[in-house]
Design a binder for these strands. Structure first.
Length: 153
DNA sequence: TTGGGTCCTG
DNA sequence: CAGGACCCAA
């Protein structure tokens, strides 16, 4: 399967259904195993993503930031460098504007939760995941192109 | 029972 | 990232 491509898709969708994923990999003969693997990949992508978000949010709090709305993500921030290195290693594509928005919202959600001491509760991240799951955007049609990966080079 | 998901490991 | 334990909804 195409790990590189799946990672790039993450910039648009964090919680894609297996049905949607299949549409974007028309060249793959899906079965129980590889679909599960693809779904698992996104689960791993989210893990990395949320870990970074929580880390960054806690850092903002430790630096004395008071309001979540004061949290902004610059295109040249360290956070962006890390995310880009993980999902878009060779800068295959330009990071879509909406992803920046999603990152900002995620950071604010974590910030508010931590600031409000919610992070001591049982499954405090669940509510955050729920919010973020609604921020998926449609994946560009060109991802369906048979020679998508080749066009990146 | 399954298919997703998360969490924690290796 | 892959595996496996474990949870939840369909």
């Amino acid at each position: 399967m195409h790990l590189r491509k799946a990672k790039l898709m993450f910039f648009w969708v964090r919680y894609p259904s297996s049905a949607v994923l299949k549409m974007y990999f028309p060249d793959i003969k899906f079965n129980k195993n590889n679909t599960a693997q693809l779904v698992k990949w996104f689960s791993n992508f989210r893990e990395f993503y949320y870990i970074q978000m929580e880390k960054y949010a806690r850092q903002a709090i430790s630096e004395g930031l008071k309001a979540a709305d004061d949290l902004h993500v610059a295109g040249d921030s360290e956070l962006y460098r890390v995310l880009n290195l993980h999902y878009n290693r060779n800068n295959h594509i330009e990071v879509p504007p909406n992803f920046r928005y999603v990152v900002e919202q995620t950071l604010r959600e974590f910030f508010r939760a931590i600031q409000g001491g919610k992070d001591t509760e049982q499954s405090w991240k669940k509510s955050i995941y729920k919010v973020i799951s609604r921020l998926d955007d449609p994946v560009p049609e060109y991802f369906k192109s048979p020679n998508f990966l080749e066009q990146l080079e």
